[in-house]
């Protein structure tokens, strides 16, 4: 579904990705783990065209999207819950979700019902302004907003960042649900390697802008290097 081949990109003169190859197949949950500054978020963002690829190609369902404007890539059926959540703070929850349906306004009401079912908390808070929500609720809103466009591929950037273990569990449960019940493909960037690898079908490990390891979630969980680098010293919740 999503094929990344030989992708290099960066900011200014600094190369953040150095020839990344990665594949996400339809119906999978694929996770990308790695330390701070490894280039995980850059990879996720470059799928949507910012930053632009310096070298290499990005294909979505066989179509070359490497040079496409961001808003057109999104219209092909990719939705993103970006780093830092980036909800609209002065707009209400309902308005945020409405913005999520920009590319599919005819599905607004269906989408709303679905998102409120996944996150009942958002329904309670629907008239509250985004900026006044708690961190966990903002993350729910960010994911909910991404789901409003009925994407075939959902890109999530560190949904567990800064959240209480309870909320992390809940959010990962929702990711599993949309994947299993609706067959939505999910590409998940995470630092919480333990949770992410347990959830994902397959995983990639990134280090200094390169993919260093890949395999099924179970394989990676059992891998000695992965354990040493990302899992020892506490499994989180």
């Amino acid at each position: 579904m999503l094929t990344i081949a030989g992708l290099s990109t960066g900011y200014g003169h600094i190369e953040a990705l150095r020839g990344v190859d990665l594949e996400v197949r339809a119906g999978e949950i694929v996770t990308l783990i790695g330390a701070n500054g490894a280039g995980k978020s850059t990879l996720l963002m470059s799928v949507c065209g910012s930053p632009r690829a310096w070298r290499g190609r990005i294909l979505f369902e066989g179509r070359d999207i490497t040079r496409m404007p961001t808003f057109e890539i999104v219209r092909l059926g990719i939705a993103q819950s970006p780093e830092g959540r980036r909800i609209f703070p002065r707009m209400t929850v309902l308005e945020n979700l409405q913005m999520g349906a920009t590319t599919a306004p005819e599905h607004f009401e269906d989408g709303l019902r679905r998102v409120f079912k996944l996150f009942p908390r958002l329904e309670e808070r629907r008239l509250q302004r985004g900026g006044t929500l708690s961190g966990g609720e903002q993350q729910m809103l960010s994911i909910g907003r991404a789901l409003m466009s009925r994407p075939r591929l959902l890109l999530l950037d560190e949904p567990s960042l800064g959240l209480a273990p309870m909320i992390v569990k809940q959010i990962f449960q929702v990711i599993r649900e949309v994947n299993e019940q609706e067959g939505m493909t999910v590409f998940l960037v995470e630092q919480n390697a333990f949770h992410a690898l347990r959830l994902a079908h397959r995983g990639y490990v990134m280090m200094n802008g390169r993919i260093t390891l890949s395999g099924t979630g179970r394989e990676l969980l059992a891998n000695r290097e992965v354990r040493a680098a990302y899992l020892e010293g506490g499994h989180g919740a």
Partner: peptide
């Protein structure tokens, strides 16, 4: 709505297909 969203966060707007 897109105007107001753009005022709030341009990057998020792009990511939503605006």
């Amino acid at each position: 709505r897109a105007w107001e969203a753009l005022r709030e966060d341009e990057i998020a707007c792009r990511a939503l297909g605006i």
